[in-house]
Design a protein around this nucleic acid. Structure first.
Length: 201
DNA sequence: CGGAAGATTTCT
DNA sequence: GAAATCTTCCGA
């Protein structure tokens, strides 16, 4: 069942935790792909030196962050990869949740074809990888997750899991903000991204 | 208009 | 550990 708008109207940290274990669904011309969200990170706009919208900055790229929760914020990084975020909270509050890793659930052959690999654990274990495998690109920027093309739904089988918090990854430039424990993973899930060296110190 | 850096991935 | 690779941003 598709998650309602209200689900997304929470602060970025609460939403990041709530999204774990949910299922990301993307309908494309080639087929449907689904994956269970197993790793997320929070980016808290105003107070977060690592966020694109730090200090309330607005530009062409992060405008969508200022919309109400439930929209897709897609951005390109290093000129070669896309990363997908989910906008949280109310309008004018630039908080987002970055999806870092998914566990393949449906449309796996299509993912393998897009990723050019048959290693299941390599399909969705990273922000750039999951966008490539799910077929998410600039045309998905700003999509309403309450629409029919790209959305998040409740898993059919609810399984119990523990949430683990750790430091965010690859944001060394962000000063103190890099030490915030705003990365959340499902404990003992083998599909989280490879770079899991950072632990709570 | 040009330089620099980046919420990454992949290979050695 | 380092390169690949190119879009976007910021300064001049």
């Amino acid at each position: 069942m598709k998650l309602p708008r209200e689900f997304y109207k929470e602060d970025g940290i609460s939403l990041a935790k709530k999204l774990l274990g949910k299922v990301l669904v993307h309908h494309t011309a080639e087929g449907v792909t689904k994956g269970i969200i197993v790793e997320t990170e929070s980016y808290m706009g105003i107070v977060d030196a690592a966020a694109h919208s730090y200090k309330g900055k607005k530009d062409g790229r992060c405008n969508i962050q200022y919309k109400e929760g439930g929209y897709a914020y897609i951005y390109m990084i290093y000129g070669m990869y896309y990363c997908m975020n989910i906008v949280a909270n109310e309008e004018e509050v630039p908080e987002v949740v970055l999806l870092r890793a998914l566990e393949p659930l449906e449309g796996i052959p299509l993912m393998e074809q897009r990723r050019k690999t048959a290693k299941r654990k390599a399909l969705l274990s990273g922000p750039g990888k999951l966008c490539q495998a799910m077929g998410i690109g600039k045309e998905s920027y700003g999509l309403d997750l309450c629409g029919d093309q790209l959305y998040v739904e409740e898993p059919e089988e609810k399984t119990a899991f523990e949430i683990e918090a750790s430091k965010r990854i690859n944001i060394d430039y962000a000063g103190e903000a890099k030490d915030y424990l705003w990365r959340f993973t499902i404990k003992n899930n083998s599909y989280v991204s490879v770079k899991v060296k950072q632990e709570i110190s």
